[in-house]
Amino acid sequence: MAVVSATVGPGVRVPRRHAQWWLAWRRYKRNKLAVAGAACVAVYLVLGLIGPWVAPQNYAQANFLYANHPPSLRFPFGTDGLGHDMLSQVLWSMRNAIEITFGASLLSFAIGVTLGLWGGLRGGVADMVIMRLVDFMFAIPQFFLSLFLVVAMGRTVWPILLAIGIPGWAQYARLVRGLVLGMRNGEMVEAARAFGASRAHIARRYLLPNVSNSMLVQIAFGIPVDLTVMAGLSVVGLGLRPPLPSFGNMIAQAGANVLGYPWLMYFPAAIFAVILLSFLFVADGLQEALNPRAEDGGRRARRFGFGARGRLF
């Protein structure tokens, strides 16, 4: 009998600190597109942060002497009809895009996770009300809600951030609630209940840490969607009010002049496309790295469209 306790001293491998992150990184590395995407996103973030300081001109600075100047050494991306340096416009647009999309995603995330966790854990009436709200949000194209909010609130940075962020919560709420429901009756929660953990303790120590990966992935998928919504608002004339620069404004304006001054379209559109794709690749890589057992179907759907938010427009 002593055999059991005495000689069974299995060689437990002491793990590297944060072994899970390390493993996730190894899985992430395998996806070359995701690594490239991460590099692009990093460049985007850095340029967006330092952009206003390194930009050759202020975004509002017009120089009619150099209106519609093609790309040159002085104006690498050319200039538009008001003589705005397009490179500066792109850098400032990045700054605005980062502020708005990250802010909006965090806002959607905060509202959605709170409501989803609460509903999933409490069940009953609270859950039902939340889920009807979620259904309502899904029934209306998110873009129109954003449109409506912009009209109501205005067209500067904060109103647009709120207009994009507020309607986005339903995604997160539904995802969190689904995950919580899956875990609520599972053995992990049952074990915690069995040693007397309260509901709040279970939510904090057992549920939240286990939805964080999926949330991170969802945010990564959410940001390019928010970017698109933001550009879409500009295209219909309800984006950031010029002279505040944004990719949508630039592309919308360039569309009118694409034959005469094609550089106005090339540079902003190409950069915008690269940013969008990079985020999608990163999100895809994160999905594989953090939720390695996730189903292929969903991933592919998101890769080739905007998946969960398919009815964007």
Binding site: Q20, M188, E190, A191, R205, Y206, P209, N210
Partner: peptide, 12 residues
């Protein structure tokens, strides 16, 4: 529990 892995928090 029958499935000890399922009863433990993978994050702990």
């Amino acid at each position: 529990f029958q499935d000890p892995l399922a009863s433990l928090n993978p994050r702990m």
